[in-house]
């Protein structure tokens, strides 16, 4: 059974503090959507609203055509995986996994069979009789996953499930989570503050800030075409240079920046969104070059990044970070130009 999840016009408060404002979110059937943002952005609040641990001030939450908004948490039938695993310490792995089945009144033999089958799917058959205290972090998270999956919920939710694991295990586990979620075709909502994790695992990602979704799209679009300065900064467009389009000459737009310097942006690569706009660029999006049509700069500190050199650059628009080729190192204090690279830059309306 695959269903979609819809949150419509959700507003939520903690006491008198507004934590979510007019939030709309649709997670399609079998889709995995991540909520990504810094702590306090409202991502966990959103998950807890759907789980039923919090109630929204206004708005509705629907799973398929079932209205969850006022349904008690235990009646929602949603599989949850927690950051702290939240396994039952006094029960064995098998009893942990069987817990949800027991609550559904599924009898002894059938319950054990289904729990054992799920334990096998996460590769923990040898550990079925152990208590959680005797498992490693990765094994605990597998138990948590099995426990959430065994009830065959129409919706799976993950609250920072990999934060307590080491880096290598995190990568393995997210592949495992994605594999199980796709195999079951379960709709999933995934909360994380880790951009790499969100982008690698999700069909779509919602980048959140201050209780609102700033942009909801595929990782590819978010990464290359952020819709606003917040998202651009979030996905690594570290340099924001305000510009004004002053004239058009053939197939290029001449844009002026602070200090009166101007550069030409070819129309084939850049679409200027408005007269005043922002050139957002990753450090690799500003190529340090000895000459050419670019932003004049005085190079500062040089650091070695392995694939390139990075420079702190003094420009008329302030300090920016830009990368230069390994083949041509520049000394500190040298004069150079920064040439915008279309694939690593984007233009945002001011």
């Amino acid at each position: 059974m695959t269903v979609s999840l819809s949150l419509s016009d959700i507003t939520a408060h903690y006491g008198s503090t507004k934590v979510l404002e007019d939030l709309n979110l649709h997670v399609g059937e079998g889709e995995l959507v991540s909520l990504l943002g810094a702590s306090g952005c409202g991502k966990t609040t959103t998950l807890r609203l759907v789980a039923g641990f919090l109630e929204p001030t206004t708005g509705t939450i629907k799973l398929g055509d079932r209205d969850l908004t006022r349904l008690p948490a235990h009646a929602r039938n949603i599989g949850l995986v927690f950051q702290t695993y939240a396994l039952f310490p006094h029960l064995t792995v098998r009893e942990n996994v069987a817990f949800g089945l027991k609550q559904r009144g599924i009898g002894g033999a059938e319950r054990t069979r289904r729990a054992d089958a799920m334990i096998e799917r996460v590769g923990l058959s040898a550990f079925a009789d152990r208590h959680p205290a005797n498992l490693s972090g990765g094994q605990r998270q597998r138990v948590a996953l099995a426990r959430a999956l065994v009830i065959e919920p129409p919706l799976l939710m993950f609250d920072e499930p990999l934060s307590n694991l080491d880096a290598k295990l995190r990568v393995d586990m997210r592949v495992e989570i994605r594999r199980l979620q796709q195999a079951n075709g379960t709709t999933a909502l995934y909360v994380t503050h880790d951009q790499e994790e969100a982008f690698s695992i999700s069909d779509r990602v919602a980048i959140m800030n201050a209780g609102q979704i700033m942009q909801l799209d595929t990782p590819e679009v978010l990464y290359s075409r952020p819709a606003n300065a917040f998202v651009a900064d979030f996905v690594g467009f570290e340099n924001m240079i305000p510009m004004t389009a002053v004239s058009e000459a053939g197939d290029a737009v001449r844009a002026e920046m602070a200090g009166g310097t101007s550069i030409e942006l070819p129309k084939s690569h850049f679409t200027v969104p408005s007269r005043d706009f922002i050139l957002a660029a990753r450090p690799e999006g500003l190529l340090v070059s000895a000459a050419g049509d670019g932003i004049p700069t005085t190079l500062g500190l040089r650091t070695y990044l392995g694939r390139a050199y990075q420079y702190q650059c003094e420009t008329p628009a302030g300090e920016v970070k830009a990368n230069g080729p390994l083949a041509q190192p520049f000394d500190s204090g040298a004069n150079a130009v920064l040439i915008p690279q279309p694939e690593q830059c984007c233009l945002l309306s001011a």
């Binding site: 039938n77 949603i78 939240a86 817990f99 009830i151």
Partner: peptide, 19 residues
Amino acid sequence: FDFSIEEAAVSLGCPRWKA
């Protein structure tokens, strides 16, 4: 006590008082 454990029980279909 980690109260997520209680929430985990609730999410698995166990009413609060029983959890």
